[in-house]
């Protein structure tokens, strides 16, 4: 296995551990040479969704991300954890270029999807966002009806031509988001009339209605009650069959419950990236261990 250049940013088979799904991914200080083509394991290549190399980001003079490299695998849930202000949300927003909205932001490094650098000049950020959807910390349904909240973007994208298609698409998205049974009789009431947990699932339905490849979730349950949180966690588990999910969470139990892989961020650096089980059972770095065991946060 040719993994000398991979070990730094891909959770990898660890020779020292026999078990199939325990991987080692301690981030070494050696940064990979950017000019050198990265060789990949074929099976990994198939599953790769987003590839990030040496990503640094500055807000004006302040550096918020420092040389992040990470591989996100298709049809998995990847959780980003770390103390607040560590750059995990900033990193997440690099994946669909939401940071473009802030004028003082400067980005260096590679974010690659489908073989294309998403920050390249020719890349249309609107096209990127169609393939990389996002769910936010606070539910933000549009001030429109429940139906319109879901149908709006697909209609804009010409994904539906007939009324019947549209109805079908809305129903499917709401079903996938586990909301259909609760709202099927009040599709034309405003989206804001729902409870917080329902609003968040509506936002998830809105995001999946566009059929993106990747769904980014920025602390999607932090504003919700425990029961709604559990519903959404179940939903994430189901959705990963069709989508790749990257979620930011400040709740380590949540990461442990839903994520296949977990990355630990600290002060703009990615300290450790590993399979979730491994990360929580046996973190390789002192910082991650301290954080996970609750010594700071």
């Amino acid at each position: 296995m040719n993994d000398t250049t991979l070990q730094n940013f891909q959770p990898q088979q660890d020779q020292s551990l026999a078990s199939g799904d325990t991987v080692r991914g301690q981030y070494s200080d050696a940064t990979p040479d950017k000019g050198q083509p990265v060789t990949r394991n074929e099976s990994v290549e198939e599953n790769l969704s987003v590839r990030v190399r040496d990503l640094s980001l500055w807000y004006g003079e302040h550096q918020a991300l420092d040389d992040i490299s990470i591989d996100v695998f298709a049809n998995t849930v990847t959780a980003l954890i770390g103390p607040s202000g560590c750059g995990k949300s900033t990193f997440l927003r690099c994946l669909n270029r939401m940071n473009d909205l802030i004028s003082s932001v400067r980005i260096k490094g590679l974010v690659e999807m489908d073989g294309r650098d998403v920050n390249a000049r020719g890349m249309d950020e609107v096209a990127l966002r169609r393939r990389v959807g996002m769910v936010f910390q606070k539910p933000n349904p549009f001030p429109k009806s429940i139906f319109e909240n879901v149908a709006y973007a697909p209609r804009m994208h010409d994904m539906v031509s007939r009324k019947a298609d549209q109805d079908e698409l809305v129903e499917r998205a709401l079903r996938d988001a586990g909301l259909w049974n609760e709202v099927k009789d009040k599709l034309h009431e405003p989206g804001t009339s729902l409870s917080g947990g329902q609003q968040q699932r509506l936002c998830i339905a809105r995001a999946i209605a566009v059929r993106p490849d990747v769904i980014l979730m920025d602390e999607p349950t932090s504003a919700l009650d425990p029961i709604s949180t559990a519903t959404i966690e179940d939903l994430m588990d189901k959705l990963k069959q069709d989508f790749t999910i990257v979620t930011v969470t400040h709740n380590m139990q949540q990461a442990a419950r839903v994520a296949d892989y977990t990355a630990f961020f600290h002060l703009g650096e990615m300290i450790e990236y590993n399979a979730t089980k491994q990360m929580f059972a046996n973190p390789h770095t002192k910082k991650a261990e301290d954080y996970i065991t609750g010594r700071y946060g």
Binding site: N96, M98, V126, R129, R130, M134, F136, K138, Y152, M156
Partner: peptide, 26 residues
């Protein structure tokens, strides 16, 4: 609220569509 703008843009909506269909109605 900016969250509405971000919500629209994150769906791959262009800025003008966001203004016309989300911001102005709100």
């Amino acid at each position: 609220p900016n969250s509405l703008r971000e919500g629209a843009l994150a769906l791959g909506i262009t800025k003008a569509e966001m203004v016309r269909n989300v911001v102005v109605p709100a």
